[in-house]
Design a protein around this nucleic acid. Structure first.
Length: 436
DNA sequence: TCTGGGGTCCTAGGACCC
DNA sequence: TCTGGGGTCCTAGGACCC
């Protein structure tokens, strides 16, 4: 009874662990009486449903449905809505990842509720991949209260597919291992799932595939990858190989630093005045700068954008953004706020009712590991002068609130970067033979 | 008059993801 | 009346250089 995966060949094997209905499940951990209650978690300002319980999904409610549109349905079926608590979700997410790391260090945190594990090297300790998956699932449930599904396969895309099967078919008991599945059975499953469900196939591509007569995952597996490259480009070609079990997407254990950081929000009510916009832009800038310092990089440009409510067809519409290059890359909240407000003034137009504002930091650079003392002195002098000027002008023009926001979080601004890790993206793809 | 061609960098836009 | 907030990669085309 030896299984092919007691392998000495070290062919990669991936497990995708995904928390079911993540936000809803988090809420239920702390309110177990809601276990069977149909419920949704709402976005900021309680605008849209950003998570749905199984019961609500079964009613056909789509991700992102505005709450006001489903109120009737909610009344009919007793759907409970709760506001989101992102701090809680973040915390729960970290607990799950900690537990997963006990199984293997080869782990990629893919999103707040999903991680890829590369498991071929730890299989010896387990009876089979399925047993490993079951243990992962059981331990997370026991230690955090969160339900997960596990999909196991020789490529990330197939592991996603396996996870999909595990979620939809109770017969898998939450763990689906494709690596040991007989081909006939695998093809049977593939013929039952729409190609549009595949990771990497979105609305547009799905439609074009339909037009080509490619309806199911099985159809997609059987079509020539080279032909798909001509039609759709390298991304879909890679996807086809992945579905055939040839791993083209590597595990990214170390998250590369973000290349852009966005902080934006819709307003609870429409906003007219420059002052109010400035206050919100200052808030967003402070948040973005915080994230920037967390990843220990500097930004060399900041963009500001404002827009009216795109859903109000009868209202005059205005949407504008401006990008401001920074001569000296920085992570300083004050400097960034000054530039952001300057930009806002450029694009602000009187007479519109604004719905949304935000900032984006772009073109990150690594902080220099060593700065010459001359440079530091120069910078420090210029900074303190500018700081006073900035505080002053923000205060007079936009009030105390904007001032307070701008002044927050400048403390760690010049923390030096001790280690400079920049992981290089590697892909098996580069090593693939050219197939004709 | 004849009017090259390859390389790189940057940006905008399209597609996708959770 | 009320409609989320983040991110990624790839490609094409223009500017510029030699």
């Amino acid at each position: 009874m030896s299984s092919p995966n007691q392998n000495s060949t070290h062919a990669p094997l991936f497990a995708l662990v995904d928390v079911n209905n993540f936000y809803v499940s988090c809420e239920r951990v702390f309110a177990p009486q809601l276990e069977k209650t149909p419920m949704v978690v709402l976005s900021n300002n309680d605008g849209c449903a950003v998570a749905r319980s199984a019961e609500v999904k079964a009613l056909g409610v789509k991700m992102g449905t505005p709450w006001f549109q489903m109120k009737d349905l909610a009344k009919q079926h007793g759907i409970l809505a709760c506001s989101s608590n992102y701090t809680l979700y973040h915390d729960m997410s970290q607990r799950v990842v900690e537990i997963l790391r006990q199984f293997t260090p080869k782990l990629e945190v893919y999103s707040v509720d999903e991680s890829f594990l590369q498991i071929e090297s730890v299989l010896n300790a387990h009876e089979s991949p399925t047993h490993l998956g079951a243990e992962i699932k059981q331990r997370i449930k026991q230690w955090t209260g969160l339900p997960v599904c596990v999909g196991i396969a020789p490529s990330k895309t197939l592991a996603k597919f396996a996870n999909h099967l595990a979620k939809k078919n109770p017969s898998f008991n939450g763990v689906c291992d494709l690596s040991n599945m007989p081909k006939q059975e695998l093809y049977q499953w593939m013929s039952e799932v729409s190609a549009a469900e595949v990771w990497g196939v979105g609305r547009k591509i799905a439609k074009r595939l339909e037009g080509m007569g490619i309806h199911t995952v099985l159809d997609l597996v059987q079509v020539s990858p080279q032909m798909m490259r001509l039609q759709f480009g390298v991304v879909i070609e890679r996807l086809c190989y992945e579905l055939r079990g040839l791993s083209c997407l590597a595990l990214e254990e170390v998250a590369p630093p973000k290349q852009q950081i966005i902080a934006s929000r819709s307003f609870g009510k429409l906003v007219l005045s420059l002052d109010e916009l400035a206050e919100s832009v200052a808030t967003h800038t402070a948040r973005a700068a915080e994230k920037l310092r967390e990843q220990e990089s500097l930004t060399s440009s900041i963009s500001v954008f404002i827009q009216t409510n795109v859903f109000m067809r009868n209202e005059p519409q205005y949407s504008q953004s401006i990008q401001i290059p920074l001569v000296h890359p920085t992570d300083d909240t004050l400097v960034l706020t000054e530039m952001a407000i300057k930009g806002l003034k450029e694009i602000y137009k009187k007479g519109f009712r604004y719905k949304k504002a935000g900032v984006m930091l772009g073109l990150m650079t690594d902080k220099p590991v060593v700065q010459s003392s001359l440079f530091e002195d120069h910078q420090a002098k210029g900074k303190s002068l500018r700081l006073m000027k900035t505080l002053d002008s923000i205060n007079t023009r936009y009030g105390a609130q904007a001032l307070r926001v701008a002044a927050t979080g400048t403390d760690q601004a010049w923390k030096m970067k001790s280690e400079n890790v920049s992981p290089k993206y590697t892909s098996h793809w580069d090593q693939l033979p050219v197939v004709r």
